[in-house]
Nucleic acid binder design. Structure first.
Lengths: 195, 195
DNA sequence: TGGCATAGTAAGTAAGCACTTACATTACTA
DNA sequence: TAGTAATGTAAGTGCTTACTTACTATGCCA
């Protein structure tokens, strides 16, 4: 049985290279070299390239952190809560850049494995966020609108900023501070949802 | 010199297969078979797989249609204009699903060619839309906010709906009519930007 | 009808891929 | 110190890939 340390090194290199070159584009030879192990060691740790890929996906999930964030915002005033959520969500995306990129580029080719992971990531957040909006509507703070759609919208706003700023390495808007962009958009969202 | 018809058949099949399987995943053999030509014919039409890929990208652009849409909305009342833009934009994304998917999945691997295409697609729309918001602010209809950020936000909203609904084949929200989702979100956006 | 451009068929090349086998090396532990 | 588990080295297997070469078939126009 291979060492846990060896497995970790390989998983880490796999994350980076799958992210940069895609599943097909990243070769086992390259992953092994990057992890400073022999290629044969890779195949002693993981029975195939496909299994290795699956383990990478399971290893670096995103959901738990977001659940915590939504619990935290319940004690805050609405506008502050929205800023806080958006920024924490954005930071979460940033620190998970590699896995997000993998999901985004491979979701069509490995529908079962990746799509499930993707959906589990988003669905649980949308439902929790939608419940939050519902409570705020009941409390008379927010006007009535479709809460699930709004949850998706808010996440879509943040994600679109992340998508442009972090994944696409745009030159043009680099001078804008990302936080300012998010604040602008959250401000529109807040004004659009308040009673 | 090969026939234009032959080239078109190959380009069309390439679009589909690059979209479904990615640049590396789609083989020249498969593309040729799909286009009902011999593989050698493909190489007589396009000097390499990479050149073929570039020609696919140039062939199916998106910008001109959107420029037209933004011209159209200038005569409409604000709220109606936003609905109209969002829905036309959404339809445009839908009918260009294949090329959007290619851009999204290959943008990291072919930074120069694809990223430029992607940026030219988005930048020109953002600037035109931002100008529209500026004019509406001057006219006293909209409150003051960063118009470029808002333009990105609106496009981000529509794109996130497209992303979930069309690209990811989600099962859960399939019963929601996409138009309703867009209307919900545009409504929030409109209320958030009106004076 | 003859010639030329456009296509197809068939076979092959060189390289790269995931993955395997056989054996040598290291390091820890009993 | 002897044995065992984890790793490395080296070579190779069989398959697929992009791309090529040589030749043949087809259709169109002078």
């Amino acid at each position: 049985m291979p060492t846990i340390d060896t497995r970790e090194k390989i998983l880490k290199s796999s994350l980076r290279l799958f992210s940069q070159k895609g599943y097909i584009g990243a070769t086992t030879r390259e992953i092994a070299r990057d992890a400073c192990v022999a290629e044969v060691t890779l195949f002693r740790c993981f029975e195939s390239k496909e299994r290795l890929f699956e383990e990478v996906l399971n290893r670096y999930s995103f959901v738990p952190e977001l659940e915590i964030i939504i619990k935290e915002i319940k004690q805050m005033p609405y506008e502050e809560a929205m800023y806080y959520f958006a920024i924490r969500f954005y930071d979460g995306l940033k620190s998970r850049k590699d896995i997000i990129r993998i999901i985004q580029t491979e979701v069509y080719r490995y529908p079962d494995k990746i799509a499930n992971l993707y959906h589990s990531m988003i669905d649980s957040i949308i439902m929790t966020l939608a419940n939050y909006f519902s409570e705020m509507q009941q409390a008379g703070i927010l006007r009535f609108f479709d809460v699930k759609h709004a949850a998706r919208g808010l996440m879509g706003l943040v994600f679109s900023v992340f998508n442009m700023q972090e994944l696409l390495l745009r030159s043009k808007y680099r001078d804008d501070v990302e936080i300012d962009i998010i604040k602008s958009l959250v401000n529109i969202f807040v004004r659009g949802t308040l009673r």
